[in-house]
Simulated scan of single mutants.
Amino acid sequence: MVSSLILQHFSSLNRPKGVSLSHGNLKSNFSAIIKGLALSASDRILSVLPFYYSYGNSVLNTHLLTGGCLVLENSMMYPQLIVDKFDQENITVFYGVPSTYAILLKRTNLKEANFSSFRLLAQAGGPMPPAHINELKQLIGETDFYVMYGQTEASARLTILDAGSLNEKLGSIGKAVDGVTIEVRNKDGQPVESGVIGELCAFGKNIMPGYWRDEALTSSVMVDGWLHTGDLAYTDDEGFLYIDGRTSDMIKSGANRISPKEIEEVISELPDVAEVAVVGTPDELMGEVIKAFIVLAPDTELDQRTIQSYCLKNLAKYKVPKKISFTDELQKTQSGKVKRYLLKAS
């Protein structure tokens, strides 16, 4: 198959992959996104995402296809300028990754922003803490907020949580977009029942043919045309999908396998926390112990004991971080994902 686009993808583990995508892959997925978000020529998009990554590339092409207007802002260095442009440019659509919204919530006067022209905001690129979603929803009022999930290997998008389902299904990534079939499978490759955690696997015209000149890597994730995402997930009784973490991010502490996602969501509920990342660090006795890296909001103070006490009230004891490190920033890839391999090594 002839490649239309090769996207160099660096995972949070710093493993480079050349994702080869065909015209058919891209066309199928862009059409599904346009339908899922009801995009049109009347939309005005403020884009802060790099176009050489899957998320930004999908934003660029979906809005070019619909004839919408793209207002480019290629830096989050001065986040208040982003907020100012919402009103100046009569923006109707805005996309971000979790760190985008964390910065806007904690480091700008977003509370004073004018959202009257907005039609929707959307999030992808990793799980956004429910506490941040709720805080944002209070500010944007009736404006729709969509949660999206996908991978570069899927041309961008695999699922969308419709804005109308957000309150009832907070924490879900929604359901498969048009043209995509999703199954949650066990280690034997068999579909599991609702409520049972397994690996999220996807099939559709949007799925890549393979990695550029790397058959071994391709065969490790592609089986009979199905993409094995490496993400752990489950469905509820209504078929809504929930991510439980990545297999590579799981913390192995003693006899427990712990997903950092739940711990990050709890710590994010503290109003003085701007960002948090949780990893497992080596320990001679336990194998790994939980360590949280925390970025505080400007002009705030928080100590380790307060954080651990809050976690103990809201988590099982074995999920409470043993170590906490305060940092000025979390280093991220250019697509906005935390470089967890650096945190593990620190």
Rank of each mutant, 00 (worst) to 15 (best):
D237E: 13
L21Y: 04
D188Q: 14
K17A: 13
L39A: 05
Y149W: 15
F118C: 00
E275V: 03
S219H: 14
E193D: 13
E215D: 12
A277G: 05
G125R: 00
G24R: 14
T327Y: 06
L166R: 02
Q8W: 11
A277C: 10
T247F: 09
E238D: 15
T159H: 04
A277T: 06
S31Q: 14
G141T: 06
L139T: 08
T300N: 07
L110Q: 09
N74G: 14
S42F: 10
G24Q: 13
D231G: 00
R107P: 07
Q8H: 08
D237W: 10
G254M: 08
N256H: 12
D188G: 10
S116P: 09
T218R: 07
D214H: 02
G195L: 09
G68D: 13
L5R: 15
Q304T: 13
H132G: 09
L60I: 00
L39W: 01
A131F: 06
T281L: 05
G18R: 06
T281V: 08
G287Q: 02
Q151R: 12
E135I: 04
A122N: 00
F145Q: 00
F86V: 06
A131G: 09
M222L: 14
L296N: 00
L285W: 12
E183Y: 01
D84I: 02
L200W: 03
E329N: 12
R44Y: 10
M128Q: 10
A233W: 08
I140S: 08
I160L: 13
I307Y: 01
D283C: 08
N74D: 12
P321G: 04
C69H: 15
I267K: 02
L315Q: 03
L60E: 01
K137A: 05
S28M: 02
L312K: 15
G336S: 06
T300V: 06
K319H: 10
H228Q: 11
L166H: 04
V71G: 06
V196T: 04
V19P: 04
L227A: 10
D43I: 04
K313G: 07
Q304V: 13
N61P: 06
L64V: 11
Q304N: 15
S325E: 13
G195A: 03
G174P: 08
S309N: 13
L121N: 04
V177W: 04
T152F: 01
T181W: 12
P209G: 06
G225P: 02
I103D: 01
G171Q: 01
G210Y: 09
L64W: 15
D328Q: 13
L37S: 10
A154M: 03
L60T: 02
M250S: 07
Y242R: 02
Q190R: 15
M250D: 05
N90F: 07
W226E: 04
A156P: 05
Q151C: 10
E288T: 04
H63R: 12
E168A: 14
R119D: 12
L227G: 08
H63P: 07
S12W: 03
S219T: 14
R157K: 15
I173A: 05
L158W: 02
M148R: 02
